[in-house]
Amino acid sequence: MTEYKLVVVGAGGVGKSALTIQLIQNHFVDEYDPTIEDSYRKQVVIDGETCLLDILDTAGQEEYSAMRDQYMRTGEGFLCVFAINNTKSFEDIHHYREQIKRVKDSEDVPMVLVGNKCDLPSRTVDTKQAQDLARSYGIPFIETSAKTRQGVDDAFYTLVREIRKHKEKMSKDGKKKKKKSKTKCVIM
């Protein structure tokens, strides 16, 4: 069974824990209790493949930012979460993405942009803004509501699919490099 290491990042209060708990335990946590770091595991079937999701729910508070490099190193894919009623959390996505790329030393890291709290009427981040940002990053965008469960499975499952595509691409690139290195030079 394939294991996928997913990391949920975003500013404090955007609903990272609520999304994760909704996926794992099928219930909505409405009281806000700032996370330092929590880890969850769940076995699911995605596109006919049974897999184990190892999900790291991270601290959004700035005082825990020193811990970010460590979990970013171990993560295979990242859910970059903002709240649709919090423009600052949307603007912060850029910083999370840049930090992930720096730590992973790669421009090509599996990510999904997630606009959470889409059940709320007080939207300050337009869907088109988020779609445009995701398009500019070359990553999928999904709106979710941890409260109603809308888009929750889709967000995590899409990230797994992005990781699969990335692994497939990397193995193809690896095979191309191996083929090239088999060419021999004969000096007579």
Rank of each mutant, 00 (worst) to 15 (best):
E62H: 09
Y4T: 14
G12D: 11
L56N: 14
G10K: 00
V29I: 13
I46S: 12
L53T: 10
Q43G: 12
K42E: 09
L19P: 00
A18Y: 02
Y4E: 09
K16P: 00
Y32H: 10
E63G: 13
A59N: 10
I55L: 07
T20G: 08
P34T: 06
G48I: 04
S17A: 00
Y4Q: 13
V9M: 12
L19S: 15
I36L: 09
T50W: 06
L52T: 15
V45E: 13
S17P: 00
I36D: 01
D57F: 00
G10H: 00
S17K: 01
F28Y: 11
C51L: 10
V45N: 13
E63D: 14
Q22C: 05
Q43H: 11
D38C: 01
T50Q: 11
I46L: 10
V7F: 07
E63R: 07
I24V: 09
G60E: 04
E49D: 11
Q61G: 14
F28M: 09
D47I: 02
Q22L: 03
I36M: 06
D54R: 04
I36E: 02
Y4I: 15
Y32L: 11
A59Q: 07
C51K: 08
V9E: 02
D54S: 06
E31I: 07
N26M: 07
A18P: 03
R41S: 07
Q22I: 03
Q25W: 06
K5H: 10
D33E: 11
Q61C: 13
G12Y: 07
A11I: 14
Q61F: 07
V7P: 01
Q61E: 14
I21F: 08
E62M: 09
G12F: 07
D30T: 12
E49M: 07
Q22A: 07
E31P: 06
Y4W: 07
G60D: 04
G13D: 14
I24T: 12
E3Y: 06
G12K: 07
Q43A: 11
S17D: 00
Y64P: 14
L6F: 11
F28R: 03
Y40P: 00
E49K: 13
A18C: 09
D54C: 03
V29R: 05
Y40G: 00
T35I: 01
Q43W: 04
L52F: 12
V29G: 08
D54T: 05
D33L: 04
Y32M: 13
P34V: 05
H27Q: 15
K16E: 03
L52K: 09
N26D: 12
E49N: 12
N26H: 10
N26I: 04
V7K: 06
A18T: 08
A59E: 07
T35G: 00
L56G: 15
G48M: 06
V8H: 02
I24S: 14
H27K: 12
E49V: 10
V8Q: 03
G48A: 07
D38A: 01
T35Y: 01
E63A: 06
Y4G: 07
K5S: 08
C51S: 10
L19Y: 06
L52R: 10
L53G: 07
I46A: 11
L19A: 15
L56R: 05
V45W: 07
I46C: 13
G48D: 09
L23N: 15
R41F: 05
G15V: 00
K5N: 14
V7R: 04
S17V: 00
K42D: 09
D30V: 09
V9R: 03
T2Y: 08
A11P: 09
D30P: 12
E62Y: 08
D30M: 09
E37A: 03
G13R: 09
G10L: 01
E63W: 04
D30Y: 08
I55M: 11
Y32W: 11
Y64A: 14
I24Q: 14
I24M: 15
S39M: 06
V45Q: 14
I46N: 11
T20Y: 01
V44G: 12
